[in-house]
Amino acid sequence: MEIMAKFTLYVVRHGQTYFNIFNKLQGWSNSPLTQKGIDGAVETGKRLADIDFKATYCSDMPRACKTMSIIDDQNKAFNVCPPMVSPFFREQFYGYFEGLNMDETWYATGAPHGAPTFKDIITKYDMDHAKDFMKEADPFHLAENAEEYWKRVNQGLKLITSNPNLEDGDNVLLVSHGNTLLSLVDRFSEPGQFDLSVRPANGSITKMIVDGDQIKVTEYNK
């Protein structure tokens, strides 16, 4: 029987990008970090500088990798644990809506279901419904629905929890994306524990306790 460690997972959203400023969906598309995004990643790195991370993981999107690299520069522990970069930790794929205006996209996605804004969708339904609604609204039906999304992200979680080098009490870092972070919090927090209509800030830190297959969110968007 495989015995998994109990550890703290720090999940960081990448630094601000130009698409963030322009209010555009990025998903599997990408735009560079702004200077504010770079400076914010430095500050996040300083906040994490004294934490001994035994393992680090990162989405393979350039904005996440750049953020990880900047955080890396602030933390000497990274010298002995280079990040494992994987597409498992990517943002949701938005299909036809990649690069389009967020508000217009969420209207097209949620309005047929009586929820014309992202906040309405999250309040009335949840993150999984948001994914299913988007695939339904995508004229090419290429956007990831909840089943497709979690099939991918669960492989990433398995990659982390099955790390044989982790021991009880260790700290692990993951740099990922806004909606992926929201999806994790939506799935692994108590109902009403956090206001998920508030998106995680660029460079913010969310903490989770991982105990085998059990995950509990303890802090969100700090």
Rank of each mutant, 00 (worst) to 15 (best):
V217W: 03
F194N: 03
A130T: 03
P164C: 05
M1L: 05
V217I: 14
D120E: 06
P83M: 08
I205E: 14
L9W: 04
T161S: 01
D138I: 15
L100H: 13
F140D: 12
T67F: 02
R47V: 10
R187F: 05
V172A: 00
I51C: 03
T8R: 03
L182D: 07
D60R: 12
N165G: 10
N165K: 15
Y18T: 10
D60W: 14
D195T: 10
L159R: 14
L33H: 06
N163D: 05
E98C: 04
V172F: 01
Q16K: 02
Q193V: 04
S189K: 10
Y125W: 07
D138Y: 15
G37Q: 11
E144G: 05
D72M: 13
E148C: 07
T67N: 04
G95E: 01
T67V: 06
K222I: 14
E2V: 07
C65N: 05
R90Y: 10
F118P: 12
A137R: 02
G95N: 02
C58T: 13
F118M: 11
E2C: 01
K158Y: 00
D186I: 09
N75V: 14
Q193Y: 01
L157W: 14
K66E: 15
L173K: 02
P164K: 11
F97M: 06
W150C: 04
P62G: 08
P112D: 01
A108W: 00
T44V: 07
N101E: 15
R90D: 14
D128L: 09
T161E: 01
N165Q: 12
N30K: 02
F7K: 12
G203N: 12
R152H: 09
M4F: 14
A5M: 02
K124S: 00
V210G: 07
K124G: 00
D128G: 09
N154E: 14
W106D: 10
A49D: 14
D195M: 03
D39N: 06
V198Y: 12
N30C: 03
D186H: 08
Y107I: 02
K36G: 13
N20S: 10
P191W: 03
K36V: 14
T105N: 06
V12M: 01
P139D: 09
M127S: 00
F140P: 05
E148M: 12
S204L: 13
M61T: 13
K131V: 09
F22M: 15
G178Q: 13
I21P: 13
G27K: 06
K131W: 12
K222R: 09
I21M: 11
D52G: 00
V185T: 05
Q74M: 11
K66T: 15
E98W: 10
